[in-house]
Design a protein around this nucleic acid. Structure first.
Lengths: 225, 225
DNA sequence: GGCTTAACTGACCAGACAGTCAATTAGAGC
DNA sequence: GCTCTAATTGACTGTCTGGTCAGTTAAGCC
């Protein structure tokens, strides 16, 4: 298991490596961290193993030594990203909260996590461009979601019992909607910024969007039919 | 201006070309149509000019003759896709409808258009992976949106006047939300299908999603604050 | 038929790129 | 110090790929 290093401190890791002795785990982490940057920046087909090797100041062979192939490296990066998401999620707490408050936090947390982790958005987009061909090989990722759905269902049921939430809500559709509202805004911010002449990445604009997203989901849920 | 040919009937066009005489416009259309398929399938970096040439049964030089470069070809495809979107949108009609009905149709139309045009979703994703570098060179695309925003603002104002819609809604945020809810479901269907073990592309599931999206937007808007 | 222009092509190239071979070097256990 | 294993590398390679050169062929016009 790789040791914990600050997420994208690739440069820092490289400095560490240069002065230290041989250290396979450190090297592995450096490759992974730099590879994530490379894939995030250029996509799967645009990423270059040669450039990556130059980036980390090591030979290309080292990369092949640890990860076998470009695809293998990409998969490792992908799994790391999902693992990070899982660790940061911890939605279980939210189940204890009053339904409205719990739901509000769930939406806000999702938004904040996406906004804070641009790599996640980009890699998910890239993976979908490739029809999830790689992700399908990794079983680990799926284990994240049952717990999330349990939380959503519990909050929904709670709110429906008190009459605060509408009925007839599919938890999966609801989760997809929560993710959508944050994801699309971020993933497509480049075309959107151009079209609407706004800087969607600006902190103030982000805060506005965050509030809007919370309002949409809660507005929808609290609208009794 | 290119003549109108059914959107993705690349094979049909090629047959036409083989029996006919030289016809630059037809050739141009064939290249564009096949290039769209190629880019949609493989992305910008994954697309191969050689494969495209083989696909259309013409020499690679012909492609360069008409479009100058791979990037030029990609931009032409991109503009074609946005032009198609503009033509199919015709939201102006909706302004005349009662607000709730107009909004419902707007959401449903957006969803249907996205669902019907997978190429649109994929190319927008691809373009955002590339930070909208190409789209920014094309001014034409932006002209689509002012009219859309006018429609949304009109419907909003109408609904607010009758007390059917909440106040304090930013039309741009609202539009982004409408697009989000359809787009993300479709663009990320590959990872989502894997994670949730559902076939999100199945007609029944699509209909469920469509209803959900309409309910979310209208539920939000009709929730008076 | 001759002339001009544009459609269209075969052959080729220089650089890039994923991946490999065969070797060297450093650390760990004895 | 010796041996074993794993980390690490320089030098290559076969293939692919966007792009070009120098032409040939067809259509339009007089």
């Amino acid at each position: 298991m790789a040791r914990l290093h600050p997420a994208s401190a690739t440069a820092e890791l490289i400095r560490l490596r240069r002065r230290g002795r041989r250290d396979p785990e450190l090297s592995r982490d450096i490759i992974l961290s730099a590879a994530r940057d490379e894939f995030v920046e250029h996509g799967l087909n645009g990423a270059r193993v040669d450039r990556l090797a130059r980036r980390i100041g090591a030979s290309k062979n080292l990369i092949y030594h640890y990860f076998g192939s470009k695809d293998g490296l990409y998969l490792a990066v992908l799994e790391g990203i999902y693992r990070g998401m899982r660790e940061s999620q911890d939605d279980a707490k939210l189940r204890q909260l009053p339904p409205v408050e719990g739901m509000r936090r769930l939406v806000a947390n999702t938004f904040d996590h996406f906004a804070r982790t641009p790599a996640l958005i980009r890699l998910m987009s890239i993976e979908n461009i490739h029809y999830a061909r790689h992700l399908r090989r990794s079983k680990a990722v799926r284990t994240l979601y049952p717990s999330l759905l349990t939380t959503i269902s519990a909050l929904l049921a709670g709110g429906q019992a008190t009459g605060e939430f509408r009925r007839d809500v599919d938890p999966i559709d609801l989760y997809i909607s929560v993710a959508s509202l944050a994801y699309f805004y971020l993933s497509n911010q480049y075309t959107l910024s151009w079209i609407f002449r706004q800087r969607f990445a600006a902190p103030k604009r982000l805060a506005q969007r965050r509030a809007h997203v919370v309002a949409v989901i809660l507005g929808y849920l609290q609208n009794r039919d």
